[in-house]
């Protein structure tokens, strides 16, 4: 699974270049996320804007990625498409992650935190 990254200090943006995160790619995704977040950026925004579908395996892989980063770092999710957003809300995972409708919105909030 191809992930691409970009740094907008102090945020690492990880973009998923696939239209689904499902059981077929969940382990690959988890491994790729682990590799991309190895050098310990404090804040990672996962850009899901190309992802049209996620299943429970994909959801679990995102939770696992956050847990692997550790509690003192932040994994925020941005650009959730309607179906993906629905899966997060139905499973209550919207209470576990910071969700942002757009990548721009996420960067705005995370790069300029209120004093």
């Amino acid at each position: 699974m191809e992930l691409s990254t970009k740094t907008v200090d102090p945020v690492l943006i990880v973009s998923v270049n696939e239209d689904r995160i499902d059981a077929a790619v969940a382990i690959e995704f988890k491994d790729a996320m682990r590799a991309e977040t190895l050098d310990e950026p404090k804040i990672v925004v996962l850009d899901l804007s190309t992802v049209n579908f996620i299943d429970s395996s994909g959801l679990g892989a995102i939770v696992a990625s956050m847990k692997h980063m550790g509690q003192d770092r932040t994994l925020a999710l941005a650009g959730l498409t309607p179906t993906v957003d629905k899966v997060f809300r139905l499973t209550r995972m919207d209470t576990v992650f910071s969700l942002f409708a757009t990548l721009e919105g996420a960067l705005e909030a995370l790069c300029n935190p209120p004093a």
Binding site: S56, L59, G60, V63, K67, V87, T91, M93
Partner: peptide
Amino acid sequence: NAPNTNVQFADLPEGGFGWFL
């Protein structure tokens, strides 16, 4: 059952969403 999100960080569920959905 509904996934339990009211847990310690390390215990957040990585599965068990399937039958709930």
